[in-house]
Design a binder for these strands. Structure first.
Lengths: 165, 165
DNA sequence: CAAATATTGATACATTATATCGTTTCACTT
DNA sequence: AAGTGAAACGATATAATGTATCAATATTTG
């Protein structure tokens, strides 16, 4: 497995990057993580992840269904949602709540303190991880007496590529 | 109009707080802001906001429809969505993307750098505003070359009241 | 192999949100 | 007060997203 994490160094996916490398990295990591967790990385789940990994854009469940239809035959919606739920559980994909879409995670570690940067123009999604922000959530939750279960940060705007055409 | 902002000082709504005061504050502010913007705070919009302001919990569009039905007559869904869109536009309510719900804003100022704290147990929603986090989004967006349009932060967990029953 | 477990396909349905369009209401002008 | 244009509404239909159920099939385990 490729472990050099080069996939994540440009925080926002660049135009000319070697995407084949991202794809194989995402899929190989999925295999490893499934094995670790004693879960089964069966074809339908793999296909959903493959489809998400074809780009750094997020896709809706029904977009995925259409691409599965184009590849082989269209499963019922519930099948896709089951695979998505599985992949979400392993942290291999994320859900963009603001758009009802899903996309393949490109980070190797999971501190739950990820932020998503979504370009409104091209649809690309980048991920960052900020210790400063994590510390601030800690401070705020302490002061509120709030026990945090999950944090979701979605930042929308225009990416550097779309700003400089 | 009540301008002492006491409504927002306990960042997470407390059990015994004077909610009648919150309600009237929310509605009065809506009137003021509509007048300022030259918009019309007509009955249907007012009713939607009133319903949201009855608690610090967020409600789904169809929850609001049911409560309107209980009050008078049930409008079509689009009517509620129109009012919600209007209120969102004026920043009088927020949308919880993770839950497809809406709730009445309880803050007097709008720096777009609000965080939502949602209790999974009682459904209460609190709001905070952190300059540290705002600064970090600035730093990160600069380093990514990303032009930010909107930031949505939803933190789920358990509030202090539900932790100490 | 048999039993237990996990996954699938098929069907139906639930929930959330939007499109369209003719009518009504409102604010403003005369 | 009546006319006028813009805004809002009601009614209807439908789109988009997501779940529930359950029998049938595949996979793992004993």
């Amino acid at each position: 497995m490729n472990t050099d994490r080069s996939v994540e160094s440009p925080h926002f996916p660049q135009v000319g990057h070697d995407h084949a490398r991202c794809q194989s990295w995402i899929l190989q990591r999925a295999e490893v993580r499934c094995r670790q967790e004693g879960m089964r990385f069966i074809p339908q789940r793999r296909e959903v992840l493959e489809i998400l990994a074809t780009s750094h854009r997020s896709l809706g469940a029904y977009d995925i269904l259409e691409r599965m239809q184009a590849r082989a035959r269209r499963p019922p919606p519930a099948a896709v949602y089951r695979s998505l739920e599985f992949l979400l559980g392993l942290g291999l994909i994320h859900r963009m709540a603001g758009r009802n879409t899903y996309f393949a995670c490109t980070r190797s570690d999971h501190d739950q303190q990820i932020q998503f940067w979504i370009c409104r123009h091209c649809g690309m999604v980048g991920e960052t991880e900020s210790p400063v922000v994590a510390g601030e959530w800690q401070r705020l939750s302490d002061s509120l007496g709030f026990r945090v279960s999950s944090v979701n940060v979605e930042i929308e705007g225009e990416c550097i590529t779309c700003r400089n055409p």
